[in-house]
Design a protein around this nucleic acid. Structure first.
Lengths: 229, 229
DNA sequence: AATATTTGTAACCGACTTATAACCGCTTTA
DNA sequence: TAAAGCGGTTATAAGTCGGTTACAAATATT
């Protein structure tokens, strides 16, 4: 169980994370809204404890952006007397709130209640859509306007995900290798292979909606043809 | 679809009604029991969200009077730790309950579940319903439009419950293991076995109403076919 | 106590995934 | 022009994953 604690008050964040660790959580921290989103994307925590007053990007913004993508449980931290903020937060999709000051015991109770309620289910990583084309990241399926086009293998799916996120840009071969296989895991031949297989699954779809362009000696780039965005 | 929200906590009532409106309901409100009955008589809502602690006339009284006349679906709002109240409320004829604090998403799900089974014979809150299919959690029985399909074992029932609550989403194998057997109790082979057994009880039902999709290396997902929601 | 049901364990098999190597054609370059 | 580099293609083998079957242990039911 991994929890992300977001608070710019370092002392408080420390108390919170200490308590959570004692309750068996792995804890990561962020002290402003931007970093919070980064951490959320890279670490995909099971739970987020979110203060509303934050530098850079406030708690509402963080909440909104996260809810736009998935259902990671969010518990809002708010100071007494700002009931309106709580209401706003809940409207944005937060799952529960805790009013400062609070006792550690109470906090753990709330956290566990939320996890029980939400069902502990690590929500599927969501979908990635460009134009008509959607990649279902958890099922590794590509579809074009709700029509299934191809079922990918996990590696193919990772590769396509990266290419889609950088569409029309050339992604360096080394960068692809790192992102697909991890820092020490791949080589150019494996990438070549993978690109080959991915191509044959997605380029043969109805009238070439997208294709993978090779930039010799550099990398690859995903190109969408019938753009109607 | 018109909903009547009855709560003396204005902030909470606001959250509830906001959420319902977003889900497509027309919402009317009442902040005490007397007004609630008035509104119910004049507006005849399709659904009532009812807090138990109310000025003038408490939730039980409201529930009793409404039930004396018709069976408009009633969902009770209750704070955690007052299970007795919930039981009393259900005995008075309420259709379901929600424990505060709750997430908006959860609330909408409960509301929709209740509305779906309006007209059902046994609107007991121990049932989980999706489309035509109902899972009786206490008796471990699956039925399709009042027709019994299968009798499950306790573990199978637990698994199906989790899958139904997350329908169309991929649920991670580890999450399933945790929820079915508890934190230190299961392994992948046991899950494999359980899925196998559950499948053979529910997939062979009349014309494949639902099936369990495997996402290799990740988890499982429950898919409903003849969607007629 | 006897029987049936439920649950855990192990083994087998086939399908799928993926790493690896070899080959081919093209382009660049010495 | 030959050699070298690059990327596409094909083939293959090892490894993994999940479905299936069978059986034993545990539990519930009679």
């Amino acid at each position: 169980m991994k929890a992300l604690v977001v608070d710019d008050d370092l002392a408080l964040a420390d108390v919170v994370s200490f308590t959570l660790r004692k309750a068996g959580f792995e804890v990561i921290m962020a002290h402003d809204g931007q970093v919070a989103l980064d951490r959320w994307r890279t670490e995909s925590p099971d739970l987020i404890i979110l203060d509303l007053n934050l530098p850079k990007l406030d708690g509402f913004g963080v909440c909104r952006q996260i809810r736009a993508q998935d259902d990671t449980p969010i518990i809002i931290l708010s100071v007494r007397g700002e009931e309106d903020d709580i209401v706003t937060g809940l409207k944005l999709g937060a799952d529960d709130y805790i009013v400062k000051p609070f006792s550690p015991r109470q906090m753990v109770a709330r956290v566990e209640a939320v996890l029980r309620r939400v069902g502990d289910v690590h929500p599927s990583p969501g979908n990635l859509t460009v134009g008509d084309i959607t990649l279902d990241l958890s099922r590794c399926k590509v579809s074009c306007s709700q029509q299934l086009i191809a079922k990918l293998t996990p590696l193919e799916c990772r590769l396509l995900e990266i290419l889609m996120m950088n569409r029309d840009q050339v992604v360096l071969a080394d960068a692809l290798i790192d992102q697909v296989w991890g820092p020490q895991g791949g080589d150019k031949d494996m990438l070549k292979q993978l690109v080959y297989r991915l191509r044959h699954k997605i380029e043969i779809c109805p009238s070439r909606l997208m294709y993978i362009e090779t930039v010799s000696g550099v990398g690859y780039s995903l190109i969408f043809t019938s753009e109607n965005k």
